[in-house]
């Protein structure tokens, strides 16, 4: 049930639980954002993320997709409107929030520290969240290493990956490392900003499959920023189309992309280069 909504629902904050019921896990309610003295980057944007329903934020460069993602991550505060986590106003420093909502960035070449071993990179969220909380220092460290190994395994990387450095891996493998880091603390929502657009096509297909699989096996809900409508169609049952800082259309992806109501969405769908329409294949 993603969608533009007029008002902010004042529902009671049913906390926790992967089920989530009807309360959105994450929600932007009439959110706006502008840099000081600038014109608004986002205006009156309402998006809600329900557990189990992956959401795509679709639009072109400069539309405000990444800014919206930053608001949902608590990396920026909305100038107007609100961001809600489990029905309550988002507190960016709240550990429960940081644990539940994790980011994956676009460029796996710049989002991994080249001087740290992969094991340390992947377990970083555990350290910053103070997990695991109990036990001796050595026991905690062993537990963190074990969870990092499990996360690496879940993204299909070999066990010895933890001891190696990012430069030893290909682009697709690096993006898997970034995904392992995001899932290591057991989040409920992954916010992924163009997670596959830096990858070659065959790698892209495999990373999309991995994201879909992790969504199912770990009960993760994905919020994906993408300009690639094929990726959107493959991963997200819900889509929100953003143009110049405003939501122009949203709802089930099947309807938004299949029978777009807004001219901008129609143009976007029409413009995608497709083999099925390629002039030289006819």
């Amino acid at each position: 049930m993603t969608g533009t909504r007029a008002g902010a629902p004042e529902s009671s904050g049913a906390n926790g639980g992967a089920g989530g019921g009807d309360v959105p896990v994450l929600e932007a309610s009439r959110a706006g954002f502008s840099y000081r003295g600038g014109r608004p980057v986002l205006e009156d944007v309402s998006v809600s993320v329900t557990a189990g329903r992956n959401v795509a934020l679709v639009g072109e460069s400069g539309a405000g997709k990444t800014t919206l993602l930053r608001l949902l991550l608590g990396l920026a505060r909305p100038s107007t409107g609100r961001i809600l986590f489990d029905g309550a106003e988002l507190a960016p420093r709240d550990r429960a929030f940081r644990r539940a909502v994790q980011p994956v960035f676009q460029d796996p070449y710049s989002s991994l520290d080249p001087r740290q071993r992969v094991g340390r990179i992947v377990s970083e969220p555990l350290r910053s969240l103070g997990l695991p909380a109990a036990g001796s220092r050595a026991a905690r460290r062993a537990e963190a290493a074990e969870r990092a190994a499990e996360a690496l395994e879940s993204v299909g990387l070999p066990a010895d990956a933890a001891r190696r450095y990012p430069h030893e891996f290909s682009g697709g493998q690096r993006q898997r490392i970034a995904i392992a880091r995001a899932v290591v603390c057991g989040p409920r929502v992954l916010l992924a900003d163009e997670p596959v657009s830096a990858l070659d096509v065959s790698t892209r297909v495999r990373v999309v499959e991995l994201l879909a699989e992790l969504g199912r096996s770990r009960g993760l809900t994905l919020v994906v920023v993408s300009h690639d409508l094929s990726v959107v169609a493959a991963l997200c049952p819900e889509a929100v189309v953003v143009e110049s800082g405003r939501v122009v259309e949203s709802g089930p992806t099947e309807r938004v992309l299949g029978s777009p109501a807004h001219p901008y969405t129609r143009r976007l769908v029409e413009s995608v280069p497709r083999l099925s329409r390629a002039a030289r294949l006819r």
Binding site: V201, S202, L229, V231, E254, L257, V269, V272, R274, L275
Partner: peptide, 19 residues
Amino acid sequence: RSLVDSAWALEGELDRLAP
């Protein structure tokens, strides 16, 4: 073949929704 298959695989999802 793998290149062509990958391209079709991704596009297939979109073709399914918006033929």
